[in-house]
């Protein structure tokens, strides 16, 4: 347990100190969201309608693009080898790292999303729904992205490989995240139906992600 706490605290500290990428994700999120009105035009009715979807897409891209360095940096400075040969189960160590990443990169997106919703004239209750779905959905993105990050570290390749491999797998999360938001706004289905499925997707990726990432790292050499 101590080792896991140590990994978690170390990753959090690394992320929020100089050189860490914690705020980069939020900044990227802000820029992507700000770009959309330039692409689709300043029609506020349209922006209000597609606002939740844009917030979700921005969060999806932001959380995946910050992930590819998750294991690569540890591999470079040798700490990954220590984690691999350590007595702590690798899957749990990966969960600790992922939680630290989510806390520093995912949670800021959840907090920023309602504020960015102002740009799209999304009303207060639906902003709550967007934030709630992001709160439940972003862990799923982090844990699915883990697999890509581990593969990238194992193969010593970064860049676009992680999004290319992982984005198709995140489609269900996107579908149910946006569906739950729309359901809260007007949809014929009650909010609970897509929302509980989103929760289920998160819980499932919580299992699949670390197991697959551990397999990728163990099979690296």
């Amino acid at each position: 347990m101590n080792a896991l706490a140590a990994i978690f605290l170390r990753d959090v500290r690394l992320a929020i100190r100089v050189g860490g990428g914690a705020w980069m994700g939020v900044l990227f999120f802000l820029i992507v969201v700000a770009l959309v009105p330039f692409a689709v035009g300043p029609d506020s009715g349209l922006l209000q309608r597609i606002g939740p979807a844009i917030l979700w897409l921005g969060a999806l891209l932001a959380s995946l693009l910050t992930l590819d360095q998750l294991f690569a940096d540890d591999r470079e400075d040798g700490s990954l080898d220590l984690i691999l040969i350590g007595r702590t189960p690798l899957q749990l160590a990966i969960v600790a790292k992922a939680l630290a990443h989510w806390l520093t990169a995912g949670l800021p997106l959840v907090i920023a999303a309602p504020l960015l919703g102002i740009f799209f004239n999304i009303d207060l209750s639906s902003m709550g729904a967007v934030a709630l779905t992001l709160l439940v959905g972003t862990p799923a993105l982090t844990f699915l992205g883990l697999i890509g990050a581990a593969l990238a570290a194992a193969l010593r390749r970064g860049g676009l490989l992680v999004p290319v491999l992982i984005l198709p797998l995140t489609i269900p999360v996107l579908i149910f995240g946006v569906a739950a938001t729309h359901a809260a706004l007007a949809g014929p289905v009650p909010f609970g139906t897509p929302f509980t499925i989103l929760c289920a997707l998160s819980l499932m990726s919580l299992v699949v992600g670390p197991v697959a990432a551990a397999a990728a790292l163990k099979n690296a050499d």
Partner: peptide, 23 residues
Amino acid sequence: RAAAILTLVGAINIPIIKFSVDW
């Protein structure tokens, strides 16, 4: 080995994707 892991993750996900897309 890397492709095998991705293939298996895909195999778990394909039914879920199918279900989500239908929905």
